[in-house]
Design a protein around this nucleic acid. Structure first.
Lengths: 235, 235
DNA sequence: GCAAAAGTGTTTTCATTACACCCATGT
DNA sequence: ACATGGGTGTAATGAAAACACTTTTGC
């Protein structure tokens, strides 16, 4: 590290800053969705964009990402992971701003979208319908989506997108939506149940016009224990 | 993104910068090594640290990482991947500096270490012998090592650490060193050869006091073709 | 001829895949 | 009674793991 104090003294040299941007995934109606905002001010006024903000000088990066998420959704303790830092010189039209991209998984039903001071509108958009976004945000979601696909195969994180209690079919639809391929019902159930990370709620679905499904929830404690013993989740 | 131009105007607010740090892996004598520098100036003068530098305002992040690597080793076209951005408020004692960590894989024999203006010494250190480093660099190598382990299993990148021509045993030793577990010789060979990404050089080792091994090299072209057809490398 | 690493196949075990019918509920 | 999704088992296939001896060279 060749860092020197003088670097902080020059106004001009450091016309630069860093931001966080957050790819917030939700799952609803068998579809993967993203929480986007419509920008109220320039640059890219009126365009859809990822929620994000400049990181304050006295704020950890992760903390900034959490703040953005909480301000927008009101939800705490959300699954959140750093993915990649985007730093092309010209990615921001007003100066040198690199952005650290995070993705988060959220139970869409739990969110009450809070009006945001930087946004005209905040909305869940179907992932498949998104084409253009402000800045390099489209590229950012591609990168985060790839990461989500990999993480979903190698860790018990799908549950973060579902309500506390869910049916096996809901879980399967979620995997199918993210991985973009159909799975065999019997094999999926065998596999996921054999992992011993689900606990039955001893409850049934209600009000459905067919045989009601059993409800399950993720047993985080059991998973942690199994992990200690070298168990590896993989789907 | 809540970015506003005013943010660039305040001297105080933006006493901040970003750097890149590079975890440079090499493989020699059945051991995984890192290229480290001994710091010439404060903070952490005299401590071992990762090679890195402040990113210039007109430089892409990847470009900065490449520059650091080339200045130090003189080698071009090296495997280099961004891993994670470290941004704790207090990680740098002189101000707010976040750092984007990269890892690279290099054929250790190819490197002529170039004296570095920021370092008293530059040296390859055995990974296992490294305990303390300047800043949060120890944590950074842990993170990069985890990433390397995963990447090595899911992509044909081990070759980057070896000379152009290598024996199957050398390759196996490399996998064993990185993954920290012994592999069965016959199974390893069966698997790696069945992947069709090695081509025989029709040459033998020379000057060894035992039966000479065949030399192979990585067939990047064949790999690319196979990948097009949906082939997935996994070891 | 001895030390040292190269090279080579088969069997067993386990995980993955493919596949079709009956069940419980609401209307 | 019918429509809808819930729930279940077995056989076939393919991949991974376990395992030991012969070969070639330098000294």
């Amino acid at each position: 590290m060749a860092f020197q104090d003088e670097l902080f003294k020059s106004d001009d040299t450091y016309k630069s800053a860093f931001s966080v941007d957050n790819v917030i995934f939700g799952f609803d109606n068998d579809n993967l969705k993203l929480l986007l905002i419509k920008r109220k001010s320039d640059p890219f006024r009126g365009n859809w964009a990822l929620p994000g903000d400049i990181v304050s000088p006295s704020e950890d990066l992760d903390q900034a990402a959490i703040r953005v998420l909480e301000q927008l959704t009101g939800v705490k303790n959300v699954f959140l992971e750093q993915v990649h830092t985007f730093g092309k010189v010209d990615r921001h039209p007003r100066g040198r701003v690199i952005t650290i991209a995070y993705y988060s998984l959220i139970n869409i039903k739990q969110v009450n979208i809070v009006a945001d001071s930087f946004a005209d509108k905040v909305a869940w958009k179907e992932l498949r319908s998104i084409d253009k976004l402000a800045f390099d945000h489209f590229q950012i979601i591609q990168t985060c989506l790839k990461r989500l696909r990999r993480d979903l195969k190698f860790g018990p994180i799908g549950f973060e997108l579902l309500p506390e209690k869910f049916t096996l079919t809901e879980l399967q639809r979620l995997y199918e939506a993210v991985l973009e391929k159909e799975l065999d019902k019997r094999n999926f159930r065998k596999k996921i149940l054999s992992m011993n990370v689900l606990k039955s709620c001893h409850e049934l679905q209600k009000g459905v016009a067919h045989r009601p499904a059993k409800l399950y929830s993720f047993d985080a404690q059991r998973y942690e224990e199994a992990k200690e013993e070298g168990y590896i989740f993989e789907l």
